[in-house]
């Protein structure tokens, strides 16, 4: 760090400086008193003159020490002021450098976010067209030339269509992930219990033969963005529903809990669970902990949930054991 202006004042230990100054003063004073007394004795013989001379040299001593003291204090005060000034200058400069850096970083971040948004937008448009072509022309091939195509050829075309519909799912998921956390976060009171109840109700209607025992603690309220929290809970309920398909009876619960002492919410199931060794990949987009032939999926749901919780300033963790279900605990940044 450079000091602005003049050279920095030399650092002295306070006691050394004080002792040195006092010592010089004492020596000079003793020398003055002794020598001046001798001089007065030598120069004057008349007692009246001697008294007068002693008086003058006394005043002279007071005057000279006064001037020296004045010079010393002035110099010290000047040095202190200089130091204070330098320090102020420094912190002012640091402050403005800091502000500049923050502004710059904010602008960079906004730019990056905008770029990401336009990237997602471009993906939504430009990836869908070729996909539609792949799907469409394999369909057209089947329609126009079904008779000429062998059974394996038709099966290959089916694979193309399956792949294109999976890719469509990936694109939609990616877009949902980028869209759900875009825009301002507007907090209001959200009844999480109602959202979970509604999500599970929809899942039950879609899958009427499933027997699921549902336990929801009523009226758990969080402060958050209603749209985002609904998307997060939909995903969590969806997962609980999906992964508990093999459990008899399947049990899904939603209740209040604590996460490291903080009030939190918990959604749990007694389904397939997962191995905690793989938890690092749990919330990463497109990272899955189950094979497609076990549980089909895209690997976007929990990434979306985590982004939503993080945007709220909350935390999310999971606990699970293979074959014994999973628990997802999350906070929403604030809770009433």
């Amino acid at each position: 760090m450079n000091w602005p202006g003049s050279e920095p004042p030399r650092q002295l230990r306070t006691s050394t400086a004080a002792i040195r100054t006092v010592a010089i003063y004492v020596i000079v004073a003793i020398a003055w008193i002794t020598l001046s007394d001798l001089a007065v004795d030598a120069l004057f013989s008349d007692p009246a003159h001697m008294v007068r001379a002693n008086l003058i040299k006394g005043w002279l001593f007071v005057g000279v020490t006064g001037v020296l003291l004045y010079a010393l204090i002035t110099r010290l005060v000047h040095q202190i002021n200089q130091l204070v000034h330098q320090r102020q200058e420094l912190s002012r400069r640091q402050q403005s450098e800091l502000e500049e850096k923050v502004a710059q970083r904010t602008a960079e971040l906004q730019g990056a976010n905008q770029e990401l948004d336009s990237f997602a937008y471009a993906v939504s448009h430009d990836l869908r067209a070729p996909l539609r072509a792949m799907n469409g022309f394999s369909e057209a091939l089947l329609e126009d030339h079904r008779a000429e195509l062998s059974e394996p050829a038709r099966a290959h075309l089916d694979q193309i269509r399956i792949a294109s519909s999976r890719m469509q799912g990936l694109i939609d998921g990616l877009l949902a992930l980028s869209r759900v956390t875009r825009g301002a976060l507007e907090r209001s009171e959200v009844n999480l219990s109602e959202i979970v109840k509604q999500s599970l109700h929809v899942l039950q209607e879609r899958d009427p033969h499933r027997q699921v025992e549902v336990g929801i603690e009523p009226d758990l309220i969080a402060e958050g963005d209603p749209r985002m929290l609904a998307a997060a809970l939909d995903n969590l309920a969806d997962n609980a529903w999906k992964y508990s398909v093999g459990a008899v009876p399947a049990i899904i619960r939603f209740h209040a809990a604590r996460l490291d002492g903080e009030p939190a919410f918990c959604i749990s199931d007694n389904g397939a669970g997962f191995d905690m060794r793989h938890i690092d990949g749990l919330f990463k987009p497109f990272q899955r902990l189950h094979r497609q032939d076990e549980f089909p999926g895209l690997g976007i749901g929990l990434a979306t949930v985590q982004r939503i919780i993080h945007r709220h300033g909350g935390r999310i963790t999971a606990e699970a054991r293979p074959g014994q279900g999973a628990r997802f605990l999350f906070t929403t940044g604030s809770r009433s």
Partner: peptide, 10 residues
Amino acid sequence: RKPVQFAEFA
């Protein structure tokens, strides 16, 4: 909106 699946698109 143009559906991606051709059957639906058609």
